[in-house]
């Protein structure tokens, strides 16, 4: 049974090997002539305007929070979907209540303007 997961392990190995390999190759083969400009953080070729360590807007936090809430909702949908036929009308009703409650959450969040992006 455990051997079922062997492909994942192989995949993991390839990922790690590729990441490490590319870095090592670049370090070994690539020329290295550091200048002050090259040491700057990469910002699409433009000289960075300010430090990257500035505070983010609280909007990010609200968005992340709402993302979690609806992410959890989708997690509950998954086991329901696999046996939706066995659950018959009961499962449909229960899931309907669940989704309706979270739909209310969506309406509330929308109406309060939390989805509007303002800094």
């Amino acid at each position: 049974m455990l051997s079922d997961y062997a492909p994942i392990l192989v995949f993991l190995g390839i990922c790690v090997a590729f990441g490490v390999g590319v870095q090592a190759l670049s370090a070994a083969v690539g020329p290295r002539k550091p200048t002050p400009e090259k040491e700057l953080p990469y910002e699409s070729g433009i000289v960075p305007l300010e430090s990257a360590r500035r505070r983010f807007s609280v909007s990010f936090y609200v968005t992340a929070m709402l993302f979690i809430i609806f992410d959890v909702e989708s997690i509950f949908l998954f086991p329901w979907a696999t046996i939706v036929r066995d659950l018959k009308i009961f499962g449909l009703v229960e899931m309907g209540i669940f989704i309706a409650t979270l739909f209310i959450a969506l309406i509330y969040v929308w109406a309060k303007g939390a989805l509007r992006w303002e800094f």
């Binding site: 936090y61 609200v62 409650t101 509330y108």
Partner: peptide
């Protein structure tokens, strides 16, 4: 399972209310 939906709704209200 159904209580969880209420809990998520309250959490959404809290996130929006406390940050708006």
């Amino acid at each position: 399972f159904e209580i969880t939906s209420l809990l998520l709704l309250v959490a959404a209200v809290g996130a929006v209310y406390l940050t708006r």
